[in-house]
């Protein structure tokens, strides 16, 4: 994935599309867009940084996972097998990008405190929580047919961005990419020189987040520069407490 910071407007549509597509629970954001300021008035700039899972080539989360629940597909996508995850949260500690979320609660108890037992609503939704429940998340993906797309967001498991495995399997872009009003997010095959991502990387200089850690993220940023140390985050999204 290539993220064009000259185009990003910080609107967070991608975060919302991710939430609805993947049915993530309250305060769990597989995609997060940071809004921050650099400099002092009047020489101040506002910047935005979308941060999905970086799908590292050398993913620290995979290395520390004791049950191989966290694994990397041949195409580079890093996934969680929810049938193997024991909720030890080592991946949360190991990941330098903070993209992992632990399900502390059963998801039905973590959906905005609304009364999903409402009878009139149930008659329309078959009792699904949330009512916008995506059936594709229940399916199995990859050669080993693993349960990786998010499914029930089971309590006691750790989850993160899957690049919308249920969508890319169908040949669609991830939900964040599809909804972006300004085409700041581009998805494709970094190994294919003709892909949009490769072409964009040839046109613009790029950087990786925390490049010095040699994780070699497959999410590349073009336009602007990496966040400076004096960046001050504003309008942070309240997210589920992570360790």
């Amino acid at each position: 994935m290539v993220i064009d910071l000259d185009r990003c407007m910080g609107c967070r549509a991608c975060m919302e599309a991710c939430k609805v597509e993947n049915n993530t629970s309250e305060q769990i954001f597989w995609m997060n867009v940071f809004r921050y300021e650099e400099g002092d008035y009047p020489d101040v700039t506002m910047k935005f940084l979308p941060r999905p899972c970086q799908h590292c080539e050398n993913p620290p989360c995979v290395k520390v996972c004791p049950t191989q629940a966290r694994y990397q597909q041949d195409d580079g996508i890093v996934l969680t097998d929810f049938e193997k995850c024991i909720g030890c949260r080592y991946c949360i500690v190991a990941c330098p990008y903070g993209v992992n979320f632990f399900n502390w609660k059963d998801p039905e108890d973590n959906y905005y405190g609304l009364d999903w037992d409402d009878k009139e609503l149930d008659s329309v939704t078959d009792g699904a929580v949330p009512p916008w429940k995506n059936p594709d998340l229940d399916k199995r993906y990859g050669p080993d047919e693993r349960l990786v797309a998010g499914s029930g967001h089971f309590r006691g498991t750790t989850e993160k961005c899957t690049f919308c495995i249920q969508r890319v399997t169908k040949g669609l872009d991830p939900a964040c990419v599809e909804t972006c009003p300004v085409d700041a997010l581009i998805f494709g095959d970094l190994d294919d020189p003709q892909s949009d991502v490769s072409q964009t990387l040839r046109k613009k200089s790029s950087f990786k987040l925390k490049e010095e850690l040699n994780t070699n993220p497959k999410v590349r940023y073009v336009g602007q520069t990496a966040p400076q140390t004096d960046g001050r985050e504003i309008e942070a999204i309240p997210i589920e407490a992570r360790d």
Binding site: D106, P107, S151
Partner: peptide, 11 residues
């Protein structure tokens, strides 16, 4: 997977 849960597969 989650028979007791409201989070049942849609099917």
């Amino acid at each position: 997977l989650a028979v007791a849960s409201r989070f049942k597969p849609l099917e």
